[in-house]
Design a binder for these strands. Structure first.
Lengths: 217, 217, 217, 217
DNA sequence: CATGAATGAGGTTTCATTCAT
DNA sequence: GATGAATGAAACCTCATTCAT
């Protein structure tokens, strides 16, 4: 409570720089409408900045979009860095990873929509991004370590590929959020409702853990 | 029923009717570039039809997009109708379901991209679609039956929710395709390569099956 | 008189195509204000065409400018093709060439201004112009022939370079027109007045012929 | 007179005053891109000065352009003042005049480009320039004297108009430089190459002298 | 004397859509 | 059923210029 209040005062005292305000507004706009659907005018309005400033700071629409994506990835990594999987038992660590990933996407639908849109563009804005390349996360190392510990304890099967396991985790956490709208229209499941949300998380955990189990003999 | 069959035959007989050509071209264009990114001119060029014809047959861009989506769902349903899970043992049926789903998305990237784009638009083109409403698939019944048989045999846990299980299956089959570009850029995993593709399918099967296992006591 | 009337009726009956009207308007606009100074809006207004049509027919401003230049060169060549220097004595031919060139520039100040502007742009619009490359005129052959005849008759010196001689002719005909404004401001000579104009032509002829005289012994 | 001398010394003493740097940068920028094509930002970058300083010293873009032109004319005049035609024989004086003019333009392509651009603007920046008005050169007197001496000696024809003769000289020296780009693209003659340059000068001399010869009887 | 941030007007270009035949 | 020309609204982007310090 005290913290959040401090934040607010901070915001008042050190108002976001124009550049930051533009970036935040762009993130909202692009998340809502995609790259082509998003309007530079809309970003100007949201941010309260002059349209000219957008070009001053970011060059053009495409580069602004790229900056937004880099921002998303940086944030994702910052979040993941806070997980300390090493300090938990293998089973707890896996559960923690799934929960973390699930809630991250759940709380950052903007990020999910931006990633979806970027896939529509064949990730062309990420390709040459040095900023994103630098992230190439050490999360994989952490996961690898956890998997090794689980295998040593006889809980998980041997030789689980950490990248593919991470894809499995991401799949079951990301898809229910990213495809929320069509799932609701098509199946009647609303992953926005608390009930369906928790159920989805339950299935996600089971699936992730299930993919690690030793082959039955 | 008779109607749809006639349609299919019509397609076979006059596969190059202008309307058909436009619809196919629109599907390609929208899959490549999304709703906003897709160009009516592009569709005209791809289809070889006059731009005026597009408006003649489909009214406007948005309605054309809707027609494309309906086409996608009809196709999806036609595919799923061909699965006969009842004729297989519970374990085989689940494996079959995953494989089928996986290869369907793999072979129909266009459909995946269109679904993604539609989610960006909050499924607003599906909401009022009578054509799609009619689909509301009976697949869930089939899945439900399979799960019941598995539970009776002691293979699966009780009370698995068929919709949520289907979401799990879809997640692990759809996400690696839909996010192929960012996964490659970010993790270096290329789900287009045969090796990574097969590995992905393997993890998908394990995860789906794993989500059905009875809770350890 | 009859001719011009016919032309007018022709114009009424077969009105200039929109493309032609745009090209003519662009020529005026660019001649008046240069490439950067010229406005696409201005061209639309002058031509009476919709701005969209300009892009439909010519792609963009730069390519329109290029089309204007090609038009200018085509016209210049068409004019020069009408000269039949071979049918005149060497002296007459040279005089004819100078007069022709002089009056052409005098009557086509637009062309002069466009060429000046293109030089400011380092002729970058001409570089890859196939249309202009094709012109690479046979006038040089004609001039060469005339010079040879004059040399054979002992009137001109041997081995006059036809390109450099043409440059000399162009210099004395073009510069007084192209630099009319600064000459008037600086020297008080107005090459637009009939008196100064005729005097200028007189000096141009003397200079051109003078450059051909045999070296005194 | 005292003033201008002080200015020159000032330039020598503080050659890098901000105002000087801006003027020089503006000259480069406008010579390269013309009035409309030249960018205030570009001038700021070239000069290393703050954009605000440009407005502080020169008011606005147009006035800065005018200042550049005045600078060019002042330089031109300073150069011509160094010619002492009276001290040479008529023939030598004419040759000297042509050579001087030719090399001046050759070595000051910037000036040539600026003059061309100013002609595109109908010399409107020179019209009200008091600085340029003051120049109204006495060169004409010098030329007139040389022509008289030549006529008295029977070398030149009577009553040559010094202004028109000067235009002739300027034509054959200026045009090959100002239209270098189109001449190269069109005729393949490159007045930047040493060979073509010297040949051009040769033709220029012949033309200038030739325009002075007495009419044959 | 000097500066970096900001701005509004206006430029080029694009696009879905309609008109006339 | 089919077409090519035309259009207006609105998008992205640029630029000379000023503000606040």
């Amino acid at each position: 409570m005290a913290d959040s209040e401090t934040d607010v005062q901070d915001l008042a005292r050190r108002p976001q720089s124009t550049k930051e305000k533009i970036l935040r507004a762009a993130r909202e706009e692009f998340a809502r409408s995609g790259l082509e659907g998003g309007r530079v005018d809309g970003i100007a309005n949201r941010s309260g900045a002059n349209k000219r400033m957008i070009y001053h700071y970011f060059g053009n629409k495409d580069d602004l979009y790229k900056a937004v994506l880099e921002n998303v990835y940086a944030e994702l990594r910052a979040h993941e860095a806070r997980l300390n999987l090493e300090q938990h038992s293998p089973l707890d660590a896996i559960n923690l990873l799934v929960e973390h990933t699930f809630w991250y996407f759940h709380n950052n639908v903007e990020a999910v929509r931006l990633l979806n849109d970027e896939n529509l563009h064949n990730a062309r804005h990420m390709e040459n991004s040095k900023s994103i390349a630098r992230l190439r996360m050490n999360l994989l190392d952490t996961i690898s370590d956890t998997l090794d510990r689980g295998a040593a304890a006889g809980l998980f099967r041997q030789d689980v590929n950490p990248a593919h396991f991470y894809i499995t985790v991401a799949s079951v956490c990301y898809f229910p959020i990213s495809n929320r709208a069509t799932l609701k229209a098509f199946l009647g499941v609303d992953t926005n409702s608390r009930k369906d949300m928790l159920l989805t998380l339950d299935y996600a955990k089971r699936a992730a853990l299930g993919s690690l189990l030793p082959d039955a003999i």
